[in-house]
Write a protein that binds this DNA or RNA. Structure first.
Lengths: 212, 212
DNA sequence: ACATGCAGTTAACAACCGTTCTCTGGAATT
DNA sequence: AATTCCAGAGAACGGTTGTTAACTGCATGT
């Protein structure tokens, strides 16, 4: 099934990826709506016109970045909220997974947090779609938990959205820690972990007593 | 105490406010990091160099916009979460207040949601500070509720932050409705109201059972 | 009445932007 | 071996940007 790409196409994908990487790096200090096409090509070391061989515009590149940042995250989501182990352990596992992800892909996390409400409409739309998919997958996982026995139609989805928002908020907090001075990192990581743990725990309690 | 401003200073504040208004309008379709100084002055009808009489840079203007958008919100916060009436009524009142605020100041809400994680560091910092103040005020209000009897030190603040995040998230959803087509507005407003109500209710339940 | 202060104007600068058109060299196809 | 295809290069375009300097006119304080 996997056909070896020709030298031609392989080289093209390589510069395409270089453009995406350079853009992501440049977006650490600005928003997508101010990212220039020449700025990106300059960072890669190619002519400005080469950009058009891969993307119609920087907004188009932004949509591609959304796929890269969120598309590969779906398999992880299910295990994050999977219903194995006691509640307390599940919370700890989920937060640990978030922290690891932020550590591994800080630029991706920043990009999503920044452009979710950013100034480029197609990118906002793409993020909205992906997050809605996440919520649906979380919903499926939540439905399998005995605690959700007898829940109404919209109730599961509203809890799923609450969880997704909470994950993003927590990821953003971990990112802020990562951006701060290194000597405060350990303390602040503990602090954020504690805060997120309590919030998750409280939401879990509300979940348990939903049908009262 | 209120000293009548001279013609001089009054006119200055007038153009300053015009710059802020124009910037806010321009920021509906882009992020602050791509907002040009000339763009703003052109919209007001004033020379580009006049900008410097009021702001050092567009980032500086952004910080001023944060004050305008959030500074006047503090008195409202307390009444929003004040502990009067039964829980169900309080939730409805809070969400109604949020909806009204989004309706009255949509551009302010969009600006805060967009620039909270935006590409301009001083503005992010200013928003972070204001939101932290909000959380503190919410904490004070929560402490007066009998339900919070016996809560630990950090617990109240973590709940306060959860509420603040929830308010912002809800406001953002109402804003999306406002940006959509008019014929869907009524339905989608009901939908968002219902979603936010359930989430608030669930958090309230978690709050009631926190000390188990 | 006169001198000062200062919000806003005018003009000019070098630097940057997105986009178009033309060209080239080497991989892909025949 | 000859031909086609196409990722990337090069040059040029009209237009925009932030910033500087020197100015004007009017409200202000003496």
């Amino acid at each position: 099934m996997s056909h070896t790409l020709g030298i031609r196409q392989a080289q093209k994908q390589k510069t395409r990826q270089a453009l995406l990487d350079a853009a992501l790096a440049l977006l650490e200090e600005q928003s997508l709506s101010s990212l220039g096409l020449r700025e990106v090509t300059r960072a890669v070391g190619v002519a400005p016109t080469a950009f058009y061989r891969h993307f119609r515009s920087t907004a188009d590149l932004g949509v591609a970045l959304v796929e890269e940042a969120l598309g590969s995250l779906h398999p992880m989501i299910r295990t994050t909220v999977s219903a194995t182990g006691d509640p307390e352990e599940r919370v700890a596992r989920a937060i640990d997974l978030i922290a690891r992800h932020v550590d591994g892909y800080p630029a991706h996390v920043r990009f999503i947090a920044r452009e979710r409400h950013g100034g480029v409409q197609p990118v906002r739309e793409a993020i909205r779609e992906q997050l809605a998919r996440f919520a649906q997958e979380v919903e499926v996982e939540l439905a399998e938990d005995p605690v959700s026995r007898g829940w109404g139609e919209g109730d599961l989805l509203m809890l799923a959205h609450l969880y997704v928002d909470q994950m993003l908020s927590t990821a953003s907090l971990f990112l802020e820690v990562l951006e701060g001075p290194e000597e405060e990192r350990a303390d602040r990581t503990r602090h954020v972990t504690q805060l997120a743990t309590r919030q998750m725990r409280l939401i879990g309690l509300g979940r348990q007593h939903w049908l009262d």
